[in-house]
Design a protein around this nucleic acid. Structure first.
Lengths: 133, 133
DNA sequence: CTACCTGCAAACTTTTTGCAGCCCA
DNA sequence: TGGGCTGCAAAAAGTTTGCAGGTAG
């Protein structure tokens, strides 16, 4: 992954299928889940290739990488800016459609004398399926 | 103070020094930084013990664990709820003193039919020292 | 053609854990 | 005194990388 130096990215079968898998799920999967899914179409693909392509696609702005706790990432085929809600019961991650709360950035910028380029906002709680009351 | 399994936590020299180190820095250090620092007072402490105690302290609510990207955590000796600003130039992480934006939680709850228990908000940009214009 | 990409496997990083002895409450 | 805690080292778990052959443009 070196496109920093002006390297041209190439489209390969592996990359296309990985992107397809991500665009066709709303489940914000882990690299390993993507690997399993892609292997159904390209049985001998390697996990390393999956990781390499996920990083390239992220650099190209085609997908998002979401870093949650301890050592593993999830990927989102929806590359537009949006927030996420994580259900602490079933682990599901839902996309939130609300427009960005941009005023917050200005407030923090003013208050701290910093320049705010972006923010990350995650909500946690219990989703409709897991809320029984 | 008991943990999830009803076990009584004990105060040890190691735990005390680790907590001291965390309370005396504003730098949101990694486990490894804490390890180095603590080793100056307890030279033969092991990294495993540092990790064990960081987890215990987190469970006791004495410190916070902040998970950023790929595979490593930072710890915050300030256990009160607050947001963070990360400078993308120098890597510094600053505490933000603003009161929580709680209205957002209600808005998301209403909109998605979920129960929101908490949220996490991180700002990124450039800090006063790194902003030259 | 030729630079980039792939599969494979080994290496890396961060964190966890099993064990035998230690020590706090 | 007993059960949690420690140091040590090995193991997990997730991700990256070196290499030699393969392929997109």
């Amino acid at each position: 992954m070196k496109n920093v130096d002006g390297v041209k990215y190439r489209m390969t079968k592996q990359k296309r299928v990985i992107l397809e898998v991500l665009k066709n799920t709303k489940s914000h999967p882990t690299a390993d889940w993507v690997y399993d899914k892609v292997r159904k179409k390209i049985p001998n693909i390697s996990l390393g290739t999956v990781y390499r392509n996920l990083n390239i696609l992220k650099n190209q702005g085609e997908i998002l990488e979401l870093s949650y706790g301890k050592g593993f990432s999830r990927f989102d085929g929806n590359a537009s800016k949006h927030y996420h809600f994580t259900c602490e019961h079933c682990g599901r991650i839902l996309d939130i459609e609300t427009p960005e709360f941009i005023e917050m950035e200005q407030e923090i910028a003013r208050q701290m004398g910093v320049k705010v380029a972006r923010h990350r906002l995650e909500f946690y709680g219990s989703c409709p399926d897991c809320t029984t009351d």
